[in-house]
Design a protein around this nucleic acid. Structure first.
Lengths: 149, 149
DNA sequence: TCAAAATAGTTCGGTATCGAAATATATGCA
DNA sequence: TGCATATATTTCGATACCGAACTATTTTGA
């Protein structure tokens, strides 16, 4: 958003907040992106690894919901990951429309290799704020996010 | 991030915050995206319109910096917008490496048409929070963002 | 003054993302 | 039972985005 908008104070506060929300999110993700880059993982791929590691086999639809993305997206992400041998697909027996995605051993060990650094990067980032500031921020973000859905 | 990670309380708070930050940003942007979609604008394109409208002619580099994107990106975004007749490019006379991007009349009027709805959508979103909550959130996000750069 | 370094943009190859439309399968209802 | 509808995924065409390598131009410094 431009910085030269002339509106009421109320509008300025809201716009300013909108901008800062985006900037903060961008900054955090940019960090993660450059971290993951050395493992040849994208954020989307890492999200899939993470979900599968912690939750076990999931369908395209479940993965998409987990990351607020459309399912047609997952096809391409999973394609790439399957090509690099990180996951396997197989069709469900009960419902033959469904495809289950599962970590391979390679995917599992890559995640275990990358996760500690990723976690500590998140901790580092967030520790810019005092613990009670973190809680406060989380509360406000939750309220904002909940109001939007 | 998975929801089943077992770490210290401190880690849980930070991870939780990280997730909520992303979710809130996604929710807000998703809204904007669906709003802009009816004008055949992407978020990137709208950002360019906005910057050019409020700041006048800018170079690729300035536009990229404004949106925390790489300049090679701008080439493609500006290409698309030039094709749809929203902006023009011309090479600077003083420094012939530089390309200045400017709004066309079509771009200007499209922005003026879209901006009010966009602004009120932002206001609506942010008004989920009380004014003093908005200020508090902005302050925390700023502190977080500043610590990251 | 002129070659090396810096800067602005583009091109290339690859992934991610979307919406719309297609395919395959499952479910529900008359 | 059988057709209409719903659901899961894929395909298609388009845009966005990244890093790396490239071209053109300007600036710097010996």
């Amino acid at each position: 958003m431009g910085t030269k908008y002339n509106g009421s104070d109320e509008e300025k506060v809201a716009l300013d907040l909108f901008i800062k929300l985006n900037r903060a999110g961008d900054s955090v993700n940019r960090r993660m992106l450059s971290r993951l880059h050395s493992s040849n993982l994208t954020i989307a791929q890492f999200g899939v690894l993470d979900a599968l590691y912690h939750l076990g086999a999931l369908t395209h639809g479940e993965l998409a919901k987990k990351h607020l993305r459309s399912p047609n997206n997952m096809t391409s992400v999973i394609d790439t990951m399957e090509r690099s041998g990180l996951v396997t697909r197989h069709r469900s027996i009960e419902d033959r429309r469904v495809i289950l995605v599962e970590l391979t051993e390679k995917g599992r060990s890559l995640f275990e290799e990358v996760w500690p650094g990723h976690l500590s990067a998140i901790l580092d980032s967030m520790n810019t704020l005092e613990p009670q500031e973190q809680c406060q921020l989380a509360r406000l973000l939750k309220k904002l996010g909940t109001g939007l859905n």
